[in-house]
Design a protein around this nucleic acid. Sequence first.
DNA 1: TTACATTATCATACTGTCGGTCGGTATGTC
DNA 2: GACATACCGACCGACAGTATGATAATGTAA
Lengths: 217, 217
Amino acid sequence: MARNKHPEETVQLILDVAFRLFMEKGYEHTSIQDIIDNLGGLSKGAIYHHFKSKEDILVAVTDRMTEESNRMLAAIRDRSDLNGREKLKTIFKESICRPVQNDIFTVAPDFHNNPKLLFSLLHDTIENVAPNYILPIIRQGISDGSIETEYPGELSELILLAANVWMNPMIFDSSEEESRRKFIVFGQMLQGFGLDIVDGEMLERLQELTAIYQKSK
Amino acid sequence: MARNKHPEETVQLILDVAFRLFMEKGYEHTSIQDIIDNLGGLSKGAIYHHFKSKEDILVAVTDRMTEESNRMLAAIRDRSDLNGREKLKTIFKESICRPVQNDIFTVAPDFHNNPKLLFSLLHDTIENVAPNYILPIIRQGISDGSIETEYPGELSELILLAANVWMNPMIFDSSEEESRRKFIVFGQMLQGFGLDIVDGEMLERLQELTAIYQKSK
DNA sequence: TTACATTATCATACTGTCGGTCGGTATGTC
DNA sequence: GACATACCGACCGACAGTATGATAATGTAA
């Protein structure tokens, strides 16, 4: 085979396979040969034609993972019918409802075998999500009076770290009970910053999620 | 050479060299051969006699890193002249004053090149430090009336994550100004949980530390 | 104390696997 | 036909880990 007419499909195929294998076996324990074997006919030359290194594949995979989430965040950030605090609350709601729609749990990342993946998501959270999505919302909340803080940047980071990392059952194992307790403490923390944006509905939804994730393991 | 009379010195030498190289070049970019080359005469046989794998060396290195810190935590935890809240405050003070005495900054870990190291420290924080040191202290604080919470375990984790990870300049780059702002927000979070344990002296000390770390890079 | 067996501490040569390269080929476009 | 793109697959150096052997420390029995 040579000169496919739709190389973009080849790229997507490579990313599909790599994504699945990275999740199943971890980045480090997935070899290029593993990917080739699951590619159906394609060869090492194809991979290194489209990607310059194995690390480059990981970057592309994580980019594709966060893309959808980022679109959601941008959409909420740019709405004009909500004040800052309402936007924050909407984001939490959406974040908790979204995952089941796509396949995040059917191929749940095993972060215990994926320090590199965890690190890049951690990095993305602080270097991208916090300043580009949460910070503008908190700033808006300050000017529209719905949020009160002198440290919007730091607040963005702390909230995201707690929500995305600490409360993430894929990073730190949690039973349903632990998940519930974390959520409550998280809510207390937000209240300490004058943010009353968690409710019982969100807690229920979160526990459903945790249960689903527990079973998928 | 064969049958050294003091094999423990060999183990320590291997750990010394591995520690330094892991910090300088990162775990993944340090090869066993690199370690051998810096060992002064010793060979691969020596390494694989004392350690069963490269990963095993990393575990030993991180264990040695956290050992001193854990001794400090245990000492404070087991004091009988302080209530729970005072113990927490003492821990923060000690944590901020300690690092310069030893060489933590002269061979500052570059976590950006060390996802594995970061992950194992993160894991240690949640699986070991939180339940074995902070949790008992918070429990004591609850019974002696100096701390008030229904969720001691979750509070331990959240506080440690914020202090050890978020505020750690080795993990998330911070200027002195950012470091100051993070510390204040951290203090606000603690106050939200009824814990009034940070003061201006600690802030000054933290900024000194950040400055030292900035210069060492 | 001596003689000797045992075993812990290494050294060296080697293996299999890995990520990545490179010359080449086939197929498309202009 | 000139050139770029998409891909093939043999090959390479580096790597973690192993197999085996050498020797010095140690245990043991007389």
